[in-house]
Design a protein around this nucleic acid. Structure first.
Length: 866
DNA sequence: ATACATACC
DNA sequence: TACTGGTATGTAT
């Protein structure tokens, strides 16, 4: 069973394990030595073993491919050649060189931010991440072969003096906001790809720019006078305007300490240079950019003069083709390790090889693949930047120290479901497919999915599916335990948030009108065009009512919480309701002031460890303001100047229903939020009067505030449409943390069984200070939700400990102060139990006592399965 | 529809 | 001691 053939495999493995030096900053280093160290550090590990295995798979794929290649006759090849040529000429006809696409990419983003904020790091090799994984490294560290996606402990072997700084995502997000404000002024529809990267279409900007006066193209250098009084630890920094990373900055300030100006021309290069300049002035960080007639080329170009440089590929066919010829295929976005290796096996390393071999490739690869290759070889790709697409899936996964006990695995699974549900709620999404992902201690990954006939969104519903999937895996492995190192839950196949799409549309179109009035940029119009039916709610609503759960002829659909019959019947009310809010909305739009302050809300750069941070932040902001006013940009053509700060795609919208601020890049997200609010409200109206256990939107807002505050392990990353940033994103859950949180999870597990009722609470307007604990049933004399939640958690935990008789590993752990009710927004009863293949289902309220199925599982587990 | 692989940051 | 997390998409069945 062991790999005896180690030595020969090692060669192959280099392509997987070895240093990836095709990135900037990695020239002229001792590859062999570095690779030796990497290999040495890896060899024998389970990770290595799995890499070996994967490598063999790739090799087999290649073998198969070579075998196929051997079968290809000359005739076939010629036929293919003809087809390729035909297609080539068609593609050629569609070549569009008229757009000016720019790809901007911050240099060593995370690392640069950390260096900026901690001068001690400037001259030392450093990386952001942990001993387990680095997300990026500074250029100094790259000289040692230390780079993104490398585990810290290996990096340390390469460079013992390496300083590893834990990531501060909030900070990076804040900086990202700053640069996006600038992006928006050049292209309000720019597309962020991550925190540090974006595509912009400069075409329109350039057209306008031609008629701009010099004053509009003049920008202030950050001057010392901008700095706040406190000189203490920023003496060096205050005067040093040169970029943190590199001494040879082309945009270094002209001596003039009082603050000098830099003027830019009207050409593309000048415009892009100006943008980079402004980024640097504002953030003290540098960016690189690529200018080209399409996205793929722009992306390659941005790498060309990295760091702190830019490259323009002229928009001529000759220039493009010339550029492409020499380009290694690996540089092209979408061609990774494996594709590269396969192409290499065919003797293809550059794009010119690619075009020469297109006929062959068309016979060996799938249509999509070779079409892609053909486009690349012709230097073609998208010339317009696509609007941000609807999200297709949402997931949460976590790596931890080996987890083998089924009950712990289920606990964790439940916790993941909780987290996922929470995230789903933020975007008001529901999906039909639940996927469980597990990775065992040998790094082997499995996914197991189940698609329901209806969409789910709550932790309970998701867990109902996920636990079955997990259970099956546990059983399959039995009597051996599943030895896991990672678990994840994903949901996909989303359906319209709650079947009220028509309403959403009408209210949104209302929104649009309102917004246009005070010229918001980007105008909300870049949503997907919505087709008609704006007023005919009843028709659409009934269409959109989800198909009821069909399985097994069960009856449960009747009182299924989602069942829309009720709502559909209430149609007129709904419309009325929505109209009312549309009015409110209109009013809001008319007087933008109150919520425009909302954009303040993007992360006020809280850096507990670094007092200078906030000062600097304030400072850069000052700069911007001055910048604008002094140059009278605002009054000039620039339609976006006035909105910078709030008008970027990454802005904060105020929900017209609950008045919560929704921070998002994606209008769809906002739309869904409104939708969800409306649905909540409708439901409230529906269930009128009575027990009043539902939440007011206001309350909802408050509640989620509580949740956020309480969350010790913010997984905020995800809300960012493009969450990752820097060179590579980093999970920040250490194995230890994983274990830790697992313990906390009992509370929520317990929830499954107990299904605690919704927070009993009055509407915000007349809230009674008395809240009743759903566990102990005692009124709590507080109106502070945080306090109340804490009490409930304690209660729940008591119960849990009791049930477990203190015999499990969880006993004695302090309860997580976890908001037990954050997910469940007022549905007092469980919706349904699991469905699924061979799934017998119990009434949710059935006692958890049913034990001893014929499974080889212990009682404890069975309890979870219910 | 499901599983797995590849890719990107 | 220690090799991520989130999303999309392609490939194969």
């Amino acid at each position: 069973m062991e790999n005896r053939a180690g030595s020969t495999k090692e060669e192959n493995l280099l392509s997987r394990m070895a240093l990836n030096d095709n990135k900037a900053g990695m020239e002229g280093l001792d590859r062999d030595k570095i690779n030796r160290i990497i290999m040495e550090a890896s060899k024998g590990s389970r990770f290595y073993g799995n890499e070996l295995k994967k490598e063999q798979q790739v090799n087999q794929r290649i073998e198969k491919m070579m075998h196929q290649k051997a079968q290809i006759t000359e005739q076939l090849l010629q036929k293919a050649q003809a087809q390729v040529e035909k297609m080539t000429s068609e593609l050629e006809k569609s070549r569009d060189l008229s757009r000016v696409i720019v790809h901007v990419d911050m240099d060593a983003f995370y690392a640069a931010v950390e260096m900026r904020d901690c001068p001690e790091l400037k001259d030392t090799p450093m990386a952001v991440g942990s001993m387990s994984m680095l997300s990026t490294s500074n250029y100094h560290a790259r000289k040692y072969g230390v780079r993104a996606a490398m585990p810290g402990f290996i990096a340390k072997k390469l460079c013992p003096s390496l300083v590893i700084v834990p990531p501060n995502f909030d900070k990076y997000r804040a900086v990202s906001e700053e640069i996006r404000e600038i992006f928006a002024e050049y292209d309000p529809n720019f597309q962020p790809m991550s925190l540090d990267e974006a595509y912009l279409d400069f075409t329109d900007h350039l057209e306008q720019r031609q008629s701009w006066p010099e004053s509009s193209r003049t920008h202030r250098c950050r001057s010392r006078s901008n700095m706040p009084a406190d000189e203490s630890d920023k003496t060096e920094e205050g005067t040093d305007l040169s970029p943190v990373l590199f001494e040879d900055s082309p945009v270094s300030s002209e001596g003039d300490a009082a603050g000098s100006f830099e003027q830019f021309g009207t050409s593309v290069e000048e415009a892009v240079r100006e943008m980079r300049f402004r980024i640097e002035q504002k953030t003290t960080l540098t960016a690189s950019a690529g200018i080209a007639p399409n996205m793929m080329l722009a992306k390659v170009c941005s790498d060309k003069n990295k760091p702190n440089g830019q490259y323009r590929l002229p928009p001529t066919r000759e220039a493009v083709m010339d550029f492409i010829q020499k380009l290694p295929v690996r540089k092209v976005c979408g061609i990774g390790k494996v594709s590269e290796k396969m192409l290499n096996a065919l003797g293809i390393t550059t794009c010119s090889d690619l075009s020469k071999q297109m006929a062959l490739l068309s016979l060996l690869f799938s249509e999509t693949s070779w079409h892609h290759f053909l486009q690349i070889s012709l230097g073609l790709s998208s010339t317009h930047i696509p609007r941000h697409e609807e999200r297709k899936s949402m997931s949460t996964e976590r790596t931890f120290k080996e987890l083998s006990k089924p009950e712990e695995q289920l606990s964790l699974c439940r916790e993941l479901c909780d987290d996922l549900a929470e995230d789903l709620k933020k975007e008001a999404l529901k999906g039909k497919t639940v996927t469980l992902k597990i990775k065992n201690v040998n790094f082997e990954v499995k996914t197991r999915a189940q698609t329901l006939s209806y969409a789910v969104a709550t932790a309970e519903d998701i867990f109902a599916v996920a636990k079955d999937l997990l259970k099956t895996e546990i059983e399959n492995e039995s009597p051996q335990p599943l030895r896991l190192r990672l678990m994840g839950v994903r949901i996909s196949a989303f359906v319209s948030s709650d079947g009220k799409t028509p309403m959403q549309k009408s209210i949104i179109s209302f929104l649009q009108l309102g917004k246009r009035d005070h010229s918001r940029s980007p105008p909300i119009t870049h949503r997907k065009p919505e087709v008609g039916n704006l007023c005919d709610h009843s028709v659409q609503t009934s269409q959109l009512v989800d198909d009821p759960p069909v399985e097994n002829g069960q009856k449960q659909n009747k009182d299924f919480w989602r069942s829309k019959p009720r709502l559909t019947g209430e149609e007129p009310q709904q419309s009325f309701f929505q109209r009312a809010h549309a009015k409110r909305l209109e009013l809001q739009a008319a007087q933008p002031s109150p919520q425009d302050e909302g954009c303040e809300e993007h992360v006020p750069v809280v850096t507990p460890n670094n007092g200078t941070e906030s000062l600097k932040q304030a400072n850069t902001d000052d700069c911007t303001v001055q910048d604008l006013s002094e140059n009278e940009l605002a009054s000039h053509v620039q339609p976006h100047a006035s909105t910078s700060g709030c008008g970027t795609p990454a802005e904060t919208f105020t929900c017209p229903v609950c008045f919560a601020k929704v921070k998002t890049t994606d209008l769809n997200v906002f739309n869904r939020h409104i939708d969800s609010c409306l649905s909540d409200a409708a439901k409230r109206e529906d269930e009128a009067s009575g027990s009043e256990s539902d939440l007011d939107p206001e309350d909802d807002h408050r509640k989620s505030t509580v949740v956020t505050q309480k969350k010790e392990k913010p997984r905020d990353l995800k809300n960012e449409a493009s969450a990752s940033g820097g060179e590579l994103d980093l999970g920040r859950v250490s194995p230890q943390e994983g274990q830790q949180t697992l313990k906390n999870n009992l509370v929520s597990l317990n929830e499954v069984d107990k299904k605690p009722v919704a927070l009993q609470q009055q509407s915000s307007l007349s809230r009674s200070p008395l809240l009743t604990c759903p566990v102990c049933q005692r009124a709590q004399d507080t109106d502070d939700l945080a306090v109340f939640n804490h009490h409930v958690d304690l209660c729940l935990n008591q119960e849990v400990l009791h049930e477990f008789g203190g015999q499990t590993a969880f006993t004695g752990k302090p309860p997580a102060v976890k908001n037990s009710f954050s997910v469940d927004s007022g549905h007092p009863l469980p919706r349904h139990a699991s469905k699924g293949k061979s799934k017998r289902r119990d009434t949710p309220s059935s006692p958890p006592s049913k034990k001893a199925k014929s499974l080889g599982l212990c009682n404890t587990i069975d309890k979870f399965f219910r």
